Simulated assay, not measured.
Amino acid sequence: MTEMLDLIREAAKVLPATEERDAGEATVFAVEGNDFARIIGDSVTVRGDDGWTAIDADSDPAAIEDAVAHAWELAAPRALLEAGGR
């Protein structure tokens, strides 16, 4: 799972106002206090159009980066998106 955490971390750190925090058993990525990605053990979920969506660790790295970016867009405040977002 370290590879997945590293991939999620790399994808998230280029997104404006992203914060990473340890939430007990989970590593959480948020934008201005709104969670958009969670890693708990071997499970990775990102915010999706219809709630939280699991990401398969065997997914293509580009697809994972896109899912993280989309999750960030769903969680980011309007003002941040209007200022240029990603």
Rank of each mutant, 00 (worst) to 15 (best):
A17I: 05
V31S: 07
W52K: 05
V28C: 02
R78G: 15
G84N: 00
A57T: 09
T45R: 13
E19I: 00
R9E: 12
E3V: 08
V31M: 01
L74D: 04
T27P: 05
D35H: 12
E10R: 14
W52R: 02
E73S: 12
E65H: 08
D6N: 03
F36S: 03
E20Q: 11
G85L: 04
S59C: 09
L5P: 06
G85Y: 01
R47D: 03
R47T: 07
L15A: 06
V28N: 00
L7V: 08
D22W: 11
I8T: 11
K13L: 15
L7Y: 13
E73H: 09
D60I: 05
T18P: 03
L80C: 03
E20A: 12
A76C: 01
A57P: 09
W52M: 02
D35G: 15
D56C: 09
E32H: 13
P16I: 04
A79D: 14
W72Y: 10
E73Y: 06
A30K: 11
D50L: 10
D50T: 11
P77I: 09
A67P: 05
G51V: 11
G41Q: 04
V46M: 05
E82A: 13
A12K: 08
N34Y: 15
A69V: 10
I55P: 02
W72Q: 00
G84C: 00
M1V: 09
I55N: 11
V46W: 02
D22K: 11
P16M: 04
G41M: 06
G33N: 00
A30Y: 01
K13I: 15
D22G: 12
A23P: 01
E19R: 03
D35M: 11
R47K: 09
L81E: 09
P16V: 09
S43I: 13
A71Q: 04
E19D: 10
R21W: 12
R78P: 08
A83Y: 05
A83S: 10
D6F: 00
L5E: 15
D49T: 12
F36Y: 09
E65F: 15
A37C: 12
A71V: 02
A26Y: 05
V14R: 06
P77R: 10
I64W: 10
A57W: 00
E32L: 15
A75N: 03
A71G: 06
D56L: 04
G33A: 03
D42E: 10
A37M: 02
